[in-house]
Design a binder for these strands. Sequence first.
DNA 1: CGATTTCTTGATAGGGATCAAGGTCTGTGG
DNA 2: CCACAGACCTTGATCCCTATCAAGAAATCG
Lengths: 240, 240
Amino acid sequence: MHLRLSQFLTLTPNEISLLGELQKNSYAVPRNRDVIVQGYHYTSVFLLKQGAAIRYKIMHDGRRQIVNFVLPGELIGFPACLFETSLYSVSTLTEAIVAPITFDEIRALFGHSSRLAAAMFWQSARESAMYAEHLVDIGRRSAFERVGHLLLELVCRLRVIGLAEARSFDFPLTQELMADALGLSVVHVNRTFRRLRESGLVDVDGHHFVFKNLEGLAQLVDFESSYLSRFRISGLPFAD
Amino acid sequence: MHLRLSQFLTLTPNEISLLGELQKNSYAVPRNRDVIVQGYHYTSVFLLKQGAAIRYKIMHDGRRQIVNFVLPGELIGFPACLFETSLYSVSTLTEAIVAPITFDEIRALFGHSSRLAAAMFWQSARESAMYAEHLVDIGRRSAFERVGHLLLELVCRLRVIGLAEARSFDFPLTQELMADALGLSVVHVNRTFRRLRESGLVDVDGHHFVFKNLEGLAQLVDFESSYLSRFRISGLPFAD
DNA sequence: CGATTTCTTGATAGGGATCAAGGTCTGTGG
DNA sequence: CCACAGACCTTGATCCCTATCAAGAAATCG
């Protein structure tokens, strides 16, 4: 787990050891535990080494909107920690292993390798881009398309980090989570999801999701199969 | 216009001159012109010195989703330019003045001042945070709340850069733009917006928007008056 | 193994989309 | 100066997608 930076650039041994250093204080976090709570101030971030989490926001009437899912190798509390007060909460979906990284350590890291700084920058840019995609989903797609998109996005992202097969994946995704991520009601997700199954597009057993006709689904919900490749960085506009 | 970085840190004379250099090639762009087109590759970004623009995405069926509004002092094509192919388009809403900044220039800039690099990083983090807010708006709020939020967000953002009064602002915002930004139909925006006016909360004359009861509106649509202060950066986790 | 969660399914209602058409304003050209 | 086109706003009628309410079944968890 190298901050998933190796997706973008080849790390030098030195950089790898720097990253390894940061992870020495890993510890386990139980399921359904808030790692970051909206409204509070933080002075460190956490690398999610194992497990899954959600970034979400609770509104005054109790409704919840999940802004995205956090997968292994991604940073929790970033960029939330940059703000005076975190704008949203982050909660684990499974038991997880996190490695706290203090600002001091980040500063040192950046001093030693501006390439790593740049790489973190891209992570942030990627996240930004994914939010924009998500916005389009929620703003302009039907419930059916949204659910399809979410499933396809998850396989794609999990595949990149070796946590999914070509056409199936395991993930602690409940219908309530889908609803809160997609801006739908649980009841409607249930019906929509059933349609997906009855159409023979997807099979589910617990938390194991299988695409029985991935290409068909992708076409039906207007999912660009190049989803994640579009997030590939094209060049290094930064000094080494 | 200093990339709006001065919001976050005090620029040294040297930094200011560096930024000034970058803007020497400014030129005007007519209204309704795409500066960035989705699917194309770019090797420079543009600083929007004057005017307004939208970042948006067109779907295969022609529907449009605006992911956000670009105001003076912000970068166009960033982070879009980092990707192999731009994920969305950027189009001017008014005649605008932009200053192209090549990657070479950015690289040089970063070499001369890592503080500026860090500041750009924060801009990106801020943008990310604003997308997340927007997601909550679209995912979990009623049409009425969404329209109210959009108007309040715009005053707040415009006020910060000195382009709005305390309770009014000018902006080339049409109902169609609102609809595409908020995931609503134009017809429904029209009716919703009328309700806002009939409630005595907002007055509009052309592109001049006046809040007749800003506090009341903010409360009615659950808008945190601290909106932008929440986006303030708390510290500098980077080396000078 | 009792108690939460999570999933289902039915019934009903409503917010917002869609279709259709007219009105207003602004800029352009004759 | 007027006529016209195109953009923008407005309003009515209708429909349907999705929320909400309600309640039971199934799966999980401690």
